[in-house]
């Protein structure tokens, strides 16, 4: 006899829409032929509804403010620890040797970056103009993010608020794609790195005044940028096909 043995599990899976087609068709046929089978299936549908209503009603009290606050504090602490640093006016920074020797090991640099990140208020308070604040905000503009997903390294695009030049692409050890780019506005420019973790996030930025030509000399923070890229394990830049492939991966 080739009759299907209709266990509770099979009937339940049918009620839940989890059965593959040949078995589902057999159960549907059995359901028509046998009211007892139909009854058992209806019971499973009923139990799902019961659980669902009990679950979405009684057990969904408001999240207590204390819990919400505790988790929010954890998230803030976590976000503060993310590698993200802003140094404004790299000329002054260099002159006052805030960076010190940049040859210290990556871990030490990572630690110092964290300090700088925590001290953003200090840096911007001391040196930055309102313009710099605007420039920093522009680094996170959706238009910048869009171009980072599109433009190959070495190319420039004009955006409504400035000129974007994508400099290079890197693949971190954990597979995350990062891109170094420069955003130039009238009198200021920012050298920044954005990494793609669920969308682009700026992880590092150096800002400075542009020279008359609108171009920041390449040594105006190049050391700090190089040291940053080393500290996050950026390795060699992706070139040609490797970059094209990385860009296609994120377009998917």
């Amino acid at each position: 006899m080739s009759e299907l043995h209709l266990t509770d599990e099979i009937l339940m899976a049918f009620a839940d829409g989890e059965l593959d087609e040949p078995v589902a068709a057999a159960v549907a046929k059995a359901m028509v032929d046998d009211p007892g089978i139909a009854r058992r299936i209806v019971d499973f549908q009923q139990s799902r509804r019961l659980m669902r209503s009990a679950f979405s009603g009684a057990l969904m009290p408001e999240v207590p403010p204390a819990l919400h606050a505790a988790v929010s504090a954890q998230i803030e602490a976590y976000e503060a620890k993310q590698p993200r640093a802003v140094v404004t006016d790299i000329g002054k920074v260099r002159d006052t040797r805030r960076w010190g020797a940049l040859s210290f090991p990556p871990m030490a640099l990572a630690a110092s970056l964290a300090v700088v990140a925590a001290g953003i208020g200090y840096w911007t308070g001391s040196y930055a103009s309102k313009r710099t604040d605007t420039l920093m905000a522009r680094l996170e503009d959706p238009a910048v993010h869009r171009e980072l997903s599109r433009v190959a390294s070495g190319n420039e695009v004009d955006l409504p608020f400035g000129r974007l030049r994508v400099i290079s692409s890197y693949r971190l050890e954990d597979g995350v794609l990062c891109r170094e780019f420069k955003l130039t506005q009238t009198a200021e420019a920012a050298d920044a790195v954005a990494c793609r973790r669920d969308g682009w996030n700026v992880t590092f930025a150096l800002t400075g005044e542009t020279a008359g030509s609108g171009y920041v000399p390449s040594d105006g923070g190049g050391d700090a940028m190089t040291a940053y890229l080393q500290s996050v394990g950026a390795g060699e830049p992706l070139v040609d096909e490797a970059e094209t492939k990385a860009m296609m991966d994120i377009a998917r």
């Binding site: 057990l59 408001e62 999240v63 819990l67 988790v71 998230i75 976000e79 996030n201 700026v202």
Partner: peptide, 23 residues
Amino acid sequence: MPTAIGQELVALLPRLRRFALVL
């Protein structure tokens, strides 16, 4: 800068708590 995971976590809090209550 709010991270994606932070936002997801906050949004998920009521359901996490509900599941924790079941446990």
